[in-house]
Design a protein around this nucleic acid. Structure first.
Length: 285
DNA sequence: AACAAGACCTGCATGC
DNA sequence: TGCATGCAGGTCTTGT
C-alpha cells in the first residue's frame, strides 16, 4: 500500500484521533520488523502526549510533547495503520497475528500497526538530529515541495546511465515515489521508462515534474490507491487505483491515444530491475 | 560513484 | 485437494 500518497493518507487519517492525546496503553508484540524495535518502546510510549504527525518521503513521524525523541515509522510493502474508536469509523477491526503494535489513547482511540511481510519499521529518532539519521539523511527532495522543479531534476539525473524508471525509484533523487506512481508519472509525461536518466533534458524534465506533482496530488485527494487491502486508517478504501492509466493494465488500450490495435497492443509490461513497468510504447518516448 | 542482483518476509492467484 | 511457482505498493546489502 505505501507510496507517498498512501502514507499521507495514513497521516491524515490518524492525526484527528491522535493529536493532543495521551497514550494510555501501548503494546509491542515482537522484537523486530525490518529492524529491531527500541528496547522498552511500549513503556517509553506510556503516558506520553502526542504533539502531531508529520511525513517525510514514505516515513511517518510522530512528535511528542516534552521530548525531542520522535517515533519514525515506515510501512514497507504491506504495512497498515488502522484506528478505531474516537476519530475512527471502523468499529469492527479484525485482529490478526500481524498486529505488531497497539496503542490506545486516554480518549479511547485504538491504533494498530499491522504488517504481514514485516518490511516496515518503527524506531525512535532525535528530531534535532533527524537530518543526520542514516534512514533520513540521504533522502532527496519532497516531490510536492516548490524546490522540486525541472532544474533540480535535470541536475540530479545528469550523467546517470540507468533508466529513468530506476532513477525515479531511487529515493536519493526524489523521495516518496514508488512503482505505481513512477509508471503513472512517466505515462503522463510521455517519457519512455527505458530512456536513460541522463537523457532527460529540460523540456522532458519539466513535463515530468508536473506529472509527478499532479499524480501525487490527485492520489492524495482520492485517499491513495487500494490494491489488496484497504489503506485508510478509518477503514475506508482509497480509490485512486480507478484512475490508473497504465499500472496493472497490461494489454488494455492506452487511454488518450489510438495506439490500440495499430502499432502496439496498448499498455505493455516489461521488467526493469526485477520489477514490473507498465507503459505505452507509442506514447512514451 | 553508480549500478544490477540478491536478500529480507508473507499471502495470494494461478496452473498442474 | 495439494503442491509448486510467480508475483506484490520497499529498501538494504553485496559485489562489480
Amino acid at each position: 500500500m505505501p507510496e507517498l500518497p498512501e502514507v499521507e493518507t495514513v497521516r491524515l487519517g490518524l492525526a484527528p484521533a491522535l493529536e493532543g492525546q495521551k497514550i494510555a496503553h501501548a503494546e509491542v508484540r515482537r522484537k523486530d520488523l525490518r529492524i529491531p524495535f527500541p528496547k522498552g518502546l511500549a513503556k517509553w510510549l506510556l503516558g506520553r502526549r502526542i504533539e502531531g504527525l508529520r511525513r517525510r518521503a514514505k516515513y511517518l513521524l510522530v512528535d511528542f510533547v516534552d521530548t525531542d525523541e520522535m517515533l519514525l515509522i515506515h510501512l514497507g510493502m504491506s504495512g497498515h495503520m488502522t484506528v478505531t474508536g474516537p476519530g475512527g469509523t471502523n468499529q469492527m477491526a479484525q485482529s490478526s497475528p500481524h498486529d505488531h503494535v497497539v496503542i490506545e489513547t486516554t480518549n479511547g482511540a485504538r491504533v494498530v500497526f499491522n504488517d504481514p511481510r514485516r518490511f516496515g519499521l518503527m524506531t525512535l529518532v532525535d528530531r534535532n538530529k533527524a537530518h543526520l539519521h542514516p534512514l533520513l539523511r540521504d533522502l532527496g527532495p519532497e516531490p510536492l515541495d516548490a524546490v522540486f522543479n525541472a532544474d533540480l531534476l535535470v541536475d540530479r539525473l545528469a550523467g546517470r546511465g540507468t533508466a529513468i524508471k530506476a532513477a525515479l525509484l531511487d529515493q536519493h533523487v526524489v523521495a516518496g515515489l514508488g512503482n505505481i506512481y513512477v509508471c503513472e508519472a512517466l505515462f503522463r509525461a510521455g517519457i519512455s521508462p527505458k530512456r536513460k536518466a541522463g537523457n532527460v533534458g529540460p523540456v522532458r524534465a519539466r513535463r515530468l515534474v508536473h506529472a509527478i506533482k499532479d499524480v501525487l496530488t490527485e492520489a492524495i485527494a482520492s485517499g491513495g490507491s487500494t490494491l489488496r487491502d484497504h489503506v485508510q486508517p478509518t477503514g475506508e478504501l482509497g480509490y485512486f487505483q480507478h484512475n490508473f492509466s497504465v499500472y496493472g493494465r497490461e494489454g488494455e488500450a492506452c487511454p488518450g491515444c489510438d495506439c490500440d490495435g495499430v502499432k502496439t497492443k496498448g499498455v505493455r509490461r516489461i521488467k526493469q530491475g526485477g520489477r514490473s513497468t507498465f507503459y505505452c510504447p507509442s506514447r512514451q518516448r
